[in-house]
């Protein structure tokens, strides 16, 4: 029974990881940009929601109505000013530029808010701790369930959007060949700005859940980035359903690891990630895709 509970809690934790991985997976898998500022942008939106809640009494869910579009605009702006220029330099330049961006964001947040940890939990009432008791040993947190539901809706929605809508097809075509889309009447700059805006909008949502379920400080982004990255790679870049699966694998591994020893939480998670990475490199299509992406723009 305790084992079952560990697995259930791990799956729910995985929902959170899938949610924070959503924007990263979308950018990495579809736009082929590795965004190391991902975690910092999530923390930035967490602070934005915190300020709205603390200073203006706006509930975090209502705050998202403002913060999600604002982050989408920031994403589109970043694409135009930073990501597009650096992506022209190859696969590695965006890694450096977004790493720099994350340092800038972290330190600006530190400058403004200091080192205190904050949380949005006080602003969401009993949702932060309430749960449904299934049996004596197993309880499902309402916030965790909401997180999982959000992850499923968001990842599934984006996957359907990419597969089924004209704009989604346009985003895939642009990622595949930004030079050729012009020949079918698509402006690559505009499409990439929309795609980046969408990706960062999902980051805003994940930032909200980060802040509601736990505490955060200006430097909390790095760990979120690592978990998001691990979930993305385990699930396979390019597949958003895969990211949901990857998040759950990571969450269950961590949860089971934690039941062995307190340090087991991180160790088991990283081990699951490494095992998946090696498997995908040697048996899956990751190695192939990596080589393809690295030699994609020979000029």
């Amino acid at each position: 029974m305790i084992l079952l509970n560990q697995i259930i809690q791990g799956v729910l934790l995985g929902g959170y990881y899938a949610l924070i991985a959503c924007g990263l997976s979308f950018m990495f898998g579809v736009m082929r940009i590795i965004n190391l500022a991902h975690g910092s942008l999530a923390v930035l939106s967490a602070y934005a929601l915190y300020v709205l809640a603390d200073s203006y009494g706006v509930s975090p869910f209502l705050g998202l109505v403002v913060v999600v579009p604002a982050m989408a605009l920031i994403g589109a702006g970043l694409q135009r000013t930073v990501l597009e220029r650096s992506a022209r330099g190859g696969l590695l330049v965006p890694v450096l530029s977004t790493f720099g961006l994350s340092i800038v964001i972290d330190n600006l947040l530190f400058e403004k808010f200091g080192a205190d940890t904050r949380s949005l939990a006080p602003y969401i009432g009993d949702l932060s701790y309430d749960s449904w008791a299934i049996t004596d040993d197993i309880a499902i947190g309402k916030l965790a369930a909401l997180t999982m539901a959000t992850a499923i809706v968001l990842l599934g929605g984006i996957q359907l959007f990419l597969n089924r809508t004209p704009l989604g097809r346009m985003i895939r075509a642009t990622a595949e060949d930004p030079d050729t889309v012009g020949l079918v009447g698509v402006s690559a700059e505009r499409v990439n700005a929309i795609a980046a805006g969408l990706a960062i909008a999902t980051v805003a949502i994940s930032g909200a859940f980060l802040a509601m379920r736990a505490t955060f400080n200006p430097y909390a982004g790095a760990l979120q980035l690592i978990f998001a990255f691990e979930a993305t790679v385990i699930g396979g870049a390019g597949s958003l359903w895969g990211t949901l699966f990857g998040g759950i694998v990571l969450g269950v591994a961590q949860s089971l690891g934690a039941s062995v020893s307190p340090q087991g939480f991180f160790i088991a998670g990283h081990l699951a990630f490494l095992a998946a990475l090696f498997f995908r490199l040697f048996f899956g299509d990751l190695g192939l895709n990596l080589r393809r992406v690295l030699v994609r723009r020979p000029q």
């Binding site: 004209p166 097809r169 346009m170 895939r172 075509a173 595949e176 060949d177 030079d179 050729t180 889309v181 020949l183 079918v184 009447g185 698509v186």
Partner: peptide, 29 residues
């Protein structure tokens, strides 16, 4: 004004129909 490439550059990862549909939607308006 339409052009084809000497070395074809289809949008891989998409079906033939999706390739052409994207062109009809955006290029064809």
């Amino acid at each position: 004004l339409a052009r084809t490439h000497q070395i074809p550059r289809p949008f891989s990862g998409m079906t033939v129909f999706e390739n052409v549909l994207t062109a009809a939607f955006h290029g064809g308006g």
